[in-house]
Design a protein around this nucleic acid. Structure first.
Lengths: 348, 348
DNA sequence: AATTTTTGTGCAATCGATTGTACAAATATA
DNA sequence: TATATTTGTACAATCGATTGCACAAAAATT
């Protein structure tokens, strides 16, 4: 007799005159169960419209088949793309993803971690917030032996697998590209906050110039918050210099966009007089006029690799697991804001 | 004595020489438990670093405090913003959100619903896919008495609460605005697929023209897929007309963007010669040149209201619950692509 | 034919929290 | 003072699936 409304393995068992344990094993394709029984169980399950209760299963087995994802905000294309990558891999393995936003607030980050641990997720995938400087809450995840993978923003001290982009290389490529276009005075917008992603990009910028034997002009390096408005202010500042730059490499697309607006207001031609390169390949960069050259952060790939790192960790014996750090090569997307000419064939 | 590693209410109980049921009630602030006991329990819980097991609680209570969200893709700003709105409300009530993407694939939609039902979510919030024409799988959710709220794309036949935007009104406002700017020959890009959102927008377009006593010219209405490339093709087509339009109202921002590119290539001035209005207020619209006027779909608000509708339904007695349909007023965001002049004070 | 191994299933404990019922002690009411 | 009510806790069942162990029947081995 079916009770309230929800069908359980007991209902199936009763109908077939077997026990719930047999049903459970049949559904899980246990080798000791005869094919005959398995077929009968599956048929009855379908007939009764049985829906397994993952909660019960999770409680008993200790595996929830849930992955917690913590991102600063889902509103930014980069993060939602990473999530998409994670989800793609996770779903293919019958895992579900719980997405939580930290809004770059360490307090919220802690709450979120608590909530996810209470939800008994099998693992957590996170990008730490901008304001996060202590990592005890992340250490707590590790202490509980729950796989933790960090992406985008890494951390040296935590012994966890990480997936990051090679910011240095992305910046180097971007500046190299500007040099190839014939630019000699290349300005750089960087962040006031000394997070590694920005300092790495700065190093890439500096090294690219050095390798091209171009002296560093510190008046061309401008610190700000890298938002649109900061980009505008920074560009205005550059235009007041005695000798103008002929290119700007901004550590953010928004900064570059601000610069683009100011340049256009001053009727300065892009890229002929000033070339522009941003960073992140935000979706809007394809639609500006001219379209903005930018460094793509391989967000979907990053998500997939992050998920794979998680499942690797899940499979591996905890005792001898060694965290892996994966560094992805970014891709320079060249568009009209920096492309002065068809690149000449290289001299041999 | 603490066992394996995970702390349970039994461990707390043992330490305090009380029973687990008392601990449970103390933690849930049950009125029958003395303040003294409550304090002791909370203190011990903290001391032992107790983390409640939501899985166990969910199994017993039948409430998982999880909301399943089904969206076509998280990669589009509109959807990720709606999710953000849902999450904001949900989190404030201690609910978590599980996000699933259907990729507009009905098959995947069914799988997703199964997965969420198995995860025993307390409710489901969904935007149906473009290709979804049968709704049996949604009906199944309703049959199980699990609250279901639809947003963005509604459905007449399902007896569920829905939150949608007033597409008709958004379109009407957009066209009215173009008329106010002095436009007389307004073209319209619409979708080949006859989904209500597009037919509603079309009606808004037609009615606004009629109300202004402007005859409908069917050569100005162009069907396509509303992507960038379609916008380009449609615009080229319009430019070949004997009498050009002086404005285009596109049912999508991408379509409008395509038109903008073509106009610029033809050195046609925007908005002086041809004004442009899109639909959706995609983030990139703020960064085009000129910035694109568009109809904002109130995504975050929509998410919040959707979540509220869900909690309303949760609270209400199921037997006499009446589904609510909420229609949000969209907001016209006027930008450079349509603003010819400072609007004159209205004649009395 | 006797013994061992394999196969198929059942029994019962378990995961950790919740909750209806019971009951003693404390307090209020008559 | 006797009775009724309130207060604070304990007991034990329960949610639904999983799983170690037991054991009979069937098959394989000697």
């Amino acid at each position: 007799m079916i009770k309230s409304g929800r069908i359980t393995i007991h209902d199936i068992a009763e109908k077939l005159n077997i026990t719930a344990s047999t049903v459970s094993r049949a559904l899980n394709d246990h080798p000791r169960i005869s094919d005959l029984t398995k077929k009968a169980v599956h048929k009855m399950a379908k007939q009764l419209n049985y829906q397994p209760n993952h909660i019960a299963s999770a409680l008993r087995s200790g595996k929830s088949r849930l992955i917690g994802v913590i991102i600063p905000t889902a509103n930014r294309a980069f993060f939602s793309s990473v999530v998409r990558g994670v989800e793609e891999i996770a779903n293919s393995l019958d895992y579900k993803v719980i997405i939580c936003q930290s809004y770059d607030d360490p307090e919220k980050e802690i709450e979120t971690i608590d909530a996810l641990l209470s939800a008994r997720v099998d693992g957590i995938v996170a990008s730490t917030g901008k304001q996060t400087f202590t990592f005890d809450h992340y250490q707590r995840i590790i202490d509980k032996k729950i796989p933790l993978i960090l992406f985008d923003r890494g951390n040296q001290d935590l012994k966890v697998s990480q997936v990051v982009i090679d910011d240095y290389r992305g910046a180097y490529q971007a500046v190299k590209h500007l040099l190839d276009q014939g630019c000699k005075r290349i300005a750089h917008f960087t962040s006031v906050s000394k997070i590694s992603i920005y300092t790495d990009r700065m190093r890439g910028y500096l090294d690219a110039l050095r390798d091209a034997n171009i002296p560093i002009d510190h008046k061309l390096i401008i610190e700000g918050d890298l938002q649109l408005e900061d980009g505008r202010i920074s560009m205005e500042k550059l235009l007041r210099l005695k000798v103008r730059p002929d290119a700007v490499f901004s550590s953010s697309d928004f900064g570059a966009m601000g610069a683009m607006q100011v340049l256009k207001e001053h009727k300065i031609k892009i890229p002929e007089e000033v070339a522009l390169v941003g960073f992140s390949n935000e979706p809007f960069t394809a639609y500006t006029d001219p379209p903005l050259t930018s460094v793509d952060q391989m967000s979907i790939t990053m998500g997939k690799i992050t998920a794979e790192a998680f499942f690797d960790e899940l499979k591996t014996d905890k005792s001898n697991f060694i965290p892996q750090k994966t560094v992805l090569a970014p891709e320079l997307i060249i568009r009209g804001s920096s492309l002065k000419c068809i690149p000449e064939p290289k001299a041999i």
